[in-house]
Computed example of a mutant assay.
Amino acid sequence: MPEVHCSRERSKAAWKVIEEYLMPYVEKERYQIPRTCRLHPDNDLYRDQEQHKIRIDIYEWQCGYCKKRFYEEKFLDKHFDNRHHNLLNVSHSRCLADVCGALHCDVAMGAAPHKTKCNPAAAARNKHLCEGLADSCFPVNQGPSANRLHEFFLRQFCDALTCTGRQKPFSQGRKKRRMSISYIVISVLTLMLLLLYYTYLYIYRSGIKRGTQDLKRVSLTQSGRKKKPS
């Protein structure tokens, strides 16, 4: 298996940016990102492994391939590197970390770019990369939705790739992804079942309490009768 030189952490940061700052707008337009776009999920080298992470609890993660459990996500990442390295699709997938410069991954990772001096040449390279992503992911000749998303991508990501500091990354904001109908239905059914359960529990406990009180009342009545002189 060839050695892979691709930062998992920066790839995760890039995917986080895509999910939070791009995909909600793409879904709103009902647009399908083409496979030729480097931001397509199938082109992310680590996407399949990330989808095989199961978070059981706050301190418990499980490998979706072999079911082994870990206390922290970083140990699961190491497990993937050591035990499931052969599952990486290195022939067809690409390193998502390579587009971090265009997607402002440092901002998403909590880095402080204002503390480092801006490199005009690096900013120009990243802007060129960003504009290339806009062209390949949202070709303007593919209809109104692609045209709008192309313009949005330039404003959201590319405009801030200068050393002037006038434009901030993610200037178009962030939207929450829409919940699927099935998720909403399952949530409503779960709430209804919980409501029915607690209603039944309340009635059941009230019945027991009432029955206990009735028994005490009967017991006291019988005791009073026994104490009366014959």
Score class of each variant (00 low, 15 high):
V4E: 02
V4G: 01
H5W: 11
E9M: 02
R10H: 00
K12C: 08
W15Y: 10
E19F: 06
E20G: 06
M23K: 11
M23I: 08
P24I: 13
V26L: 12
K28R: 15
K28C: 11
K28M: 15
R30M: 14
P34D: 03
D42H: 05
D42P: 00
D42I: 07
N43W: 05
D44M: 14
L45P: 07
D48Y: 09
Q51P: 00
K53S: 01
I54T: 06
R55N: 12
I56F: 00
I58Y: 01
Y59N: 14
E60P: 02
W61M: 05
Q62D: 03
C63A: 01
C66D: 06
R69Y: 01
F70V: 08
Y71P: 02
K74S: 11
F75R: 15
H79W: 04
F80W: 05
F80T: 00
D81Y: 09
L88N: 05
N89L: 12
N89E: 12
V90L: 08
S91F: 10
H92G: 03
C95L: 10
L96S: 07
A97W: 04
D106Q: 10
V107W: 14
A111L: 12
H114D: 13
H114S: 12
H114L: 12
K117L: 10
K117E: 14
C118W: 04
A122V: 13
A123Y: 01
A124T: 10
N126W: 08
H128C: 09
C130Q: 01
E131Q: 13
S136H: 02
V140A: 09
V140K: 14
Q142I: 00
G143D: 04
S145M: 11
N147C: 12
L149P: 09
C163G: 03
G165F: 10
G165M: 09
K168A: 15
K168V: 15
P169E: 06
P169F: 09
R174A: 14
K175V: 02
K176V: 03
S180H: 11
S180E: 14
I181S: 11
Y183I: 04
V188H: 06
L189E: 06
L189T: 10
T190I: 03
L191V: 03
L193Y: 07
L193M: 13
L194N: 10
L196V: 13
Y198S: 09
Y198K: 07
L201V: 09
I203M: 15
I203Q: 15
I203C: 14
R205E: 15
R205G: 07
I208G: 00
I208M: 07
K209Q: 12
L215V: 10
Q222L: 15
S223V: 04
G224T: 00
K227W: 04
K228H: 03
